[in-house]
């Protein structure tokens, strides 16, 4: 499969209060973002267990994205701060195991940043395209 044909699957975990609303704003303002992204709404980026990322990559995602409120803006005051620490370490760990760092992404997108959401998705898709299809520990790889 050449890089042009390959359309990566992106799983995005968006927080209810900012990023999901940001994605919604992108939609209502007719800003088209790439359809590769599959959105899962969570109440807070702090709810995202980093193992979600690993399991997404294992089960079909070529790239993952966590997005939450900007630091200081968390609806729950501090959820995104915790998320940031966790994401940072999981990112480093996956990189150490040999997962292309471009597959694992995090962003801050507020409810008013529809345009930024579009850019973030574009970036994530570009990086996942560069990394190519996720094969390493994909379950489908296993010949039952």
């Amino acid at each position: 499969m050449s890089a042009e044909e390959f359309e990566p699957n992106i799983v995005a975990f968006l927080c209810n209060w900012c990023s999901y609303a940001g994605a919604d704003l992108a939609g209502t303002s007719r800003t088209q973002y790439l359809p590769n992204v599959k959105i899962i709404r969570v109440m807070c980026s702090g709810r995202v267990n980093p193992l979600f990322l690993v399991n997404a990559l294992q089960q079909g995602a070529d790239g993952v994205l966590i997005s939450g409120c900007h630091p200081g803006d968390c609806h729950y005051m501090e959820g995104n701060y915790y998320a940031r620490r966790r994401y940072t370490l999981m990112h480093k760990l996956l990189e150490h195991v040999g997962v292309d760092p471009g597959r694992v992404n995090m962003s801050w997108v507020s409810a008013s940043e529809g345009a930024k959401f579009k850019d973030v998705v574009e970036d994530t898709v570009t990086k996942a395209k560069e990394a190519g299809p996720m094969e390493q520990f994909r379950r489908r790889r296993i010949n039952w």
Binding site: P50, V54, N55, Q58, L89, M90, Q136, F137, R139
Partner: peptide, 25 residues
Amino acid sequence: QWTRRATDISENTVYHIQRAWHLAG
């Protein structure tokens, strides 16, 4: 079920990532 009991490269990798991750810090 986060990790399946089957031993193959997929589940083993996820197990080891989980184990290391839970010891972060």
